[in-house]
């Protein structure tokens, strides 16, 4: 399959597909970071995570329309406003869902699978009723369009670069919050032993609610970023949820670093194979490799060495 291309062409293809993979990687990381907190840390199987992401995407879409309508001169910065709004909206919805549903299910983690699956169906129908079944896309401001030409045959799209920068910033912020702040310490204590965390004075209900809401909020930001590389429909989240769980499990459920490493591996493998094989063939190969590795290392790529 490589025979049709010259060496220089192959290099360019790998570079550009590699970069396309990096953009996919960014969305994976943003989705998976939220899920790593909710599933990896809290143990809640959140099947509605994709729908939270899509909520963020719709909020971005609405914001872009409002800016185009009423504040044309500020259109170039609408994306930053949209991102904040997307975060706030999904954070609030997350807090509501935790309060109304998830908090009753911490002792029955498998039931969260069904409950959040139901929630995802409800949300999809709401999106369909409100925004219609057709996919919508946002108009990017001028400065995000176009691409940087590195050489004659390698071109790097600017929106991809932007999404990557965003991902790096958010990942760093999450790391600092989880591992350097007192709040992060409380979260880790609660997820490790909810009863004992209460008995040392941590308000576990509040920590649970904020943690879940934060995971959803990050998904909302992922949705915001998602609008730059794909169009948004009521069921777009479904396409990503399986991949996202795959990323989190493959990386080692309790390790944020593992999540990032596995998002990188999976997205790169998929996007470079997709160019040469069909999309589904690429997926099959990726899944086979992941299944193989998980059989050898059930705890995922990164696991803490610790007596439990």
């Amino acid at each position: 399959m490589f025979a049709d291309y010259s060496m220089a062409e192959l290099m360019s293809i790998f570079a550009m597909q590699g970069f396309a993979g990096l953009t996919l990687f960014s969305v994976f990381v943003l989705m998976a970071l939220g899920l790593a907190i909710i599933f990896g840390q809290m143990g809640v199987i959140n099947m509605a995570h994709g729908e939270f992401m899509i909520l963020g995407a719709y909020v971005t879409y609405l914001t872009s329309n409002i800016f185009a309508e009423y504040a044309q001169n500020l259109f170039s910065i609408y994306f930053f406003v949209a991102m904040i709004l997307a975060f706030v909206a999904t954070f609030l919805l997350g807090a509501l869902v935790e309060w109304g549903m998830i908090r009753f299910l911490y002792k029955r983690p498998l039931d969260t699978l069904l409950a959040t699956w139901g929630l995802s169906l409800i949300l999809q129908q709401i999106y369909r009723s409100v925004f219609g079944a057709r996919e919508v896309g946002v108009t990017l401001p001028d400065w995000l369009m176009g691409s940087v030409a590195l050489t004659d045959s390698i071109e790097i799209p600017i929106n991809g670069l932007f999404v990557m920068g965003l991902t790096v910033l958010i990942s760093i912020a999450v790391f600092i919050m989880m591992f350097r702040s007192r709040w992060g310490g409380q979260v880790r204590a609660v997820v490790q032993n909810r009863t004992m965390a209460g008995a040392v004075g941590i308000n576990t209900e509040k920590v649970d609610r904020i943690t879940f809401a934060l995971g959803c909020g990050i998904a909302g930001v992922a949705g915001s970023a998602f609008t730059m590389i794909g169009s948004t429909g009521p069921t777009s989240g479904q396409l990503y949820i399986v991949d996202t769980f795959l990323v989190v499990v493959f990386g080692g459920a309790s390790s944020l670093l593992g999540t990032i490493a596995s998002a990188f591996t999976i997205s790169q493998a998929q996007s470079s194979m997709e160019f040469f094989l069909s999309g589904s063939m690429a997926k099959v190969l990726t899944l086979l490799v992941v299944v193989g590795i998980l059989m050898l290392r059930p705890q995922g790529l990164f696991a803490l060495k610790i007596r439990r």
């Binding site: 007192r182 004992m196 004075g201 309790s254």
Partner: peptide, 30 residues
């Protein structure tokens, strides 16, 4: 529980129940 702690109760449970993946310092900080 957490309100009792705020009111002045402290608890060392059977089997210690320390947070095993957190460092000693982080454990005390909880």
């Amino acid at each position: 529980s957490y309100q009792r702690v705020a009111s002045g109760m402290g608890f060392v449970p059977q089997g210690r129940m320390i947070f095993s993946t957190m460092t000693v310092k982080e454990n005390i900080e909880t």
